[in-house]
Design a protein around this nucleic acid. Sequence first.
DNA 1: TACCTTTGCTAAAATGGTTAAGCGATAAAA
DNA 2: TTTTATCGCTTAACCATTTTAGCAAAGGTA
Lengths: 338, 338
Amino acid sequence: MANFTIRDIARIAGVSTTAVSFVLNNKPGVSEATRQRVQEVIQRTGFTPNAHTRRLNLRRSFSFHVVLYWHDYDLFNQFALEIMHGIFQSCKELGYDVTITFVDETMDCTALMESVRSKTCDGVILSQIEDSIFFARLQQEEIPFVCVDSHVKEDPSVPIVEVDYYQASYEAVKHLCRCGHKQIGFLGPATPLELRSATFGGYTDALREEGLVCNPAWISSIDFAAGAAGKYFDKLMDTSSLPTAFFCTGDAFAIDLVRSAQRHGIAIPDDLSVISIDNILVSQFIMPPLTTMTFNKELLGRRAVEVLYSMLSANEYENVTLIPTTLCERSSVKKLSY
Amino acid sequence: MANFTIRDIARIAGVSTTAVSFVLNNKPGVSEATRQRVQEVIQRTGFTPNAHTRRLNLRRSFSFHVVLYWHDYDLFNQFALEIMHGIFQSCKELGYDVTITFVDETMDCTALMESVRSKTCDGVILSQIEDSIFFARLQQEEIPFVCVDSHVKEDPSVPIVEVDYYQASYEAVKHLCRCGHKQIGFLGPATPLELRSATFGGYTDALREEGLVCNPAWISSIDFAAGAAGKYFDKLMDTSSLPTAFFCTGDAFAIDLVRSAQRHGIAIPDDLSVISIDNILVSQFIMPPLTTMTFNKELLGRRAVEVLYSMLSANEYENVTLIPTTLCERSSVKKLSY
DNA sequence: TACCTTTGCTAAAATGGTTAAGCGATAAAA
DNA sequence: TTTTATCGCTTAACCATTTTAGCAAAGGTA
């Protein structure tokens, strides 16, 4: 396949490059006859304009850059691909390309910043990144960016698209109450500085509404690390009685908890009920299948692109976009008779 | 952050743009003193050359395009992200960007070809794509490409990086034999035109070596679709006796089979052993945890990039790259006493 | 008839880099 | 002594588009 330029097309069609450019970009100022003739030559030659030249000229790259956090622990990488798919779909509709970078716990952002300064993207989507170094550097470069599925540490200047964790946790706990549970533990990070910290508010508000109080030993504040939930549970077994149910802030924690409980000979859900948030793939395959608050993962990506595009177009946009969750009932919650 | 061009740097450092360009690209012909001075200005200003201009000039984009197949059925998307991570790591080392596209069962490649013709990538990596329309179009455009984790339908002109399915299936079946199994079924596609068809050879060769023969009813040829393995098993239960073990060509099939068997009241592994290939995340969480042939998923991506890069550099490269597998013993295979 | 506007088109500048060719000055070889 | 090579640098062309400014012809208006 020969390599045509706009000059070749112009020469073949017997017009100037300007005319061809106008036809390519659907601009006025070209007669219908000429337009047809140029179109025909473009069709025949299979000409596609060089993207780099176009980007150089327009000083826009028509691409968004996605930064993905790569977790050591498989279970935490679960829906990154679905978020990506959502991002891709929206970008496709807008005519944007998508480029990707993975970062790990070193949070090294030099390569990313190099890329941004070299103008290879018009905006950045940070997926599961909550390190303020990224926000600071991106703001410094004055490049639009959004966070998705990340905790932005109370910084209202950082636009974010995330799961409505408050609503999710509130609904989850309410569901436990509806099933007759009165002793409900909280497994997740209970400090406001952590990811998914909104869950603690949903949990306490739901308890308060039901007039319940919680044994402090049943409230955990654990790290995002493989096996952390299991360790917490081991310790709990040594030192305290058990609640009748646990609300976990994520399926990865819940799965960890379930396995740890089962090792201790505690039957789920007969001895202990478990509910959580995420509905990752594994959750439907473990025994018992997990009852969890589910949501549309692709929507996270789609909304992120929409927000970013609005920022570029100087349109109005919401600084916080929440994705709603719905209950996915499976078999890890027992209905208590009362 | 101001927006400097190479001209600004040249002016500030008191040299020509050529000198700056030479410094940027580590080319000879610049005195050490000048080089230092230019470096200092670059440092101070935070200048990064415009990527589009560079790409336009060099007629290379320094990026690879990854095409990912998006499966309807979650279980089949399992290690796409890990392949991606491997691809990214290798690209990073080579200084290449990575852009992505998802395709679905419509196999629409117009957007991809547009992108290729507009020169936005120097090569394409097809992940889990086996449609010859892609090969044909890419060959037509004379753009280098590799397939990864795909079946290329006996076309030796298409470079491929894939799991050594023959070795994996041979080893898996040998393991079953070592555990005393003599009646071993095959669950997967048994026609040479399908993905992972090499598994059938490994299976039959291992059986032959052991002097075993197989009841044809225990050999399936099923589609890549959710629940297909389960349906096959349901039918088998109606019409035939069961082998003592099944070798499945993929964990998704195996999981489907296990669940179907369990619905029929057949205990795994006591009544039926199951082994397969992949070691997807779910496999360690189901009951019983799956014994399976595992491999380094990131390596698939890394090798794909290496092959593609060799093609660009006109270096030697292997047209077929096989990734070795190792046995991951868990609890789905029973040791028969004999 | 003279003047203004619109239409359809083009020449040329601009985008921000890379690179081939060339130019003094100095050093080495004939 | 003359010729040749090397060094450090610059000038200018080039990459493939978009866009501004302007021009000739046609049409409308006074």
